[in-house]
Design a protein around this nucleic acid. Sequence first.
DNA 1: CGAAAGTAACTCACTGGTTCGTACATTACA
DNA 2: TGTAATGTACGAACCAGTGAGTTACTTTCG
Lengths: 221, 221
Amino acid sequence: MTSQPLARAAGERQRDADRTKAEILQVAQREFARHGYAGARVDEIAERTRTTKRMIYYYFGGKEQLYIAVLEKAYTEVRAAEQTVDVAHLAPVEAIRTLAELTFDHHDAHRDFIKLVGIENIHEAEHIRKSELLANLGAPVLDIISRILDAGQESGDFVTEADAIDVHMMISAFCFFRVANQHTFGALFGRDMTAPEHRARLRTMVGELTVAYLRAAGAPA
Amino acid sequence: MTSQPLARAAGERQRDADRTKAEILQVAQREFARHGYAGARVDEIAERTRTTKRMIYYYFGGKEQLYIAVLEKAYTEVRAAEQTVDVAHLAPVEAIRTLAELTFDHHDAHRDFIKLVGIENIHEAEHIRKSELLANLGAPVLDIISRILDAGQESGDFVTEADAIDVHMMISAFCFFRVANQHTFGALFGRDMTAPEHRARLRTMVGELTVAYLRAAGAPA
DNA sequence: CGAAAGTAACTCACTGGTTCGTACATTACA
DNA sequence: TGTAATGTACGAACCAGTGAGTTACTTTCG
């Protein structure tokens, strides 16, 4: 075997290919998030990578499969991040408040993902439904919320008998809307919900809101 | 002047043109809502109207201007609907609950509008900003909420000192998310938030949620 | 051991269909 | 005759996707 750098082993080429695929996915995520599915250009993605369009088709098969791969990667990363959450050691009120704030931070930190979700909803989730990987992606968050709700009922901290999915939906709605609709909301109400001063207050607000709802009795006075 | 129906007055032709424009806008709204801005096809819109593509360009000037016209019409209608809301005669708690539920109903009834808002946010509101009509569309809803909040503070029903825009944002977030994200949420959690049984519960929930938040003291217990 | 066959990664040039937009002719009416 | 409205046909750019090969390495087998 020569000592020339030209002689590359198969494993090495494999790693190169994986790195290239990862690069394509990253660039594609930006492109799809910025322009939507129809607005995204495969040529543009190719141009922003070290590869060619031909290679994108070689690796992924087509625009739609590339888009689905982007979705799968994005969702998988998000779920992985969720797994690291540990609120089991906290008292119910603090646990749900912390979970709400973590969700808030998470949405704040993954703008491209939020956009992809929005885009996917415009297409009525037709691509997600084509992905087996995503179709079976039950959310462990629901387990966490369920446990917190049960503990809260037990301790008497929570009066409202809430459904875990509803609570998750409520928290997600708040966090999602602030990021996803920042532009139209900003244009219409002249307030940038993502500006630092508003960000901090709204972060506290999700927690307060959730706790207030769970604590509330039906209708006193 | 002949009595032939061929002889049509100028005013009559004008009305025809207006009717045609309205028809184009309606069809265009569906097309844009379904496929996004880039995904929408001018030829498709033309085919679904009694007009030709040539006339669309004659009336609106181009695809983007047509899209902006669609946005303007949709937003104007929504604001008009909001104007009809009257909660001034209600006590603060009932007033804010009613407002929340009306917002809920409104989102429920205008799916295409919700989609357009989502699409516009993907494009970071670039089209809305090009419209003078929409740029200056301050929301009267904020006045209503402000008055309710003030009355609630006065009467002692509300303890939380909330900002009107924040409250509006919170209510909108809940209502918007349920409709806009129904597809991905359904795919991931196996729940159709727009199904009748969930719809009713969630409608009550927005009201409860808002009231609970406004009533809540900082941290009792 | 070494030639031949095989294979994954990659390049280049190209195409067929689509899509926004328009030039030009024509009609309806003032 | 002039002007606004409308039909027809077309162009030019764009864009997803591919055909046909090349390179560089591995495996097979005489």
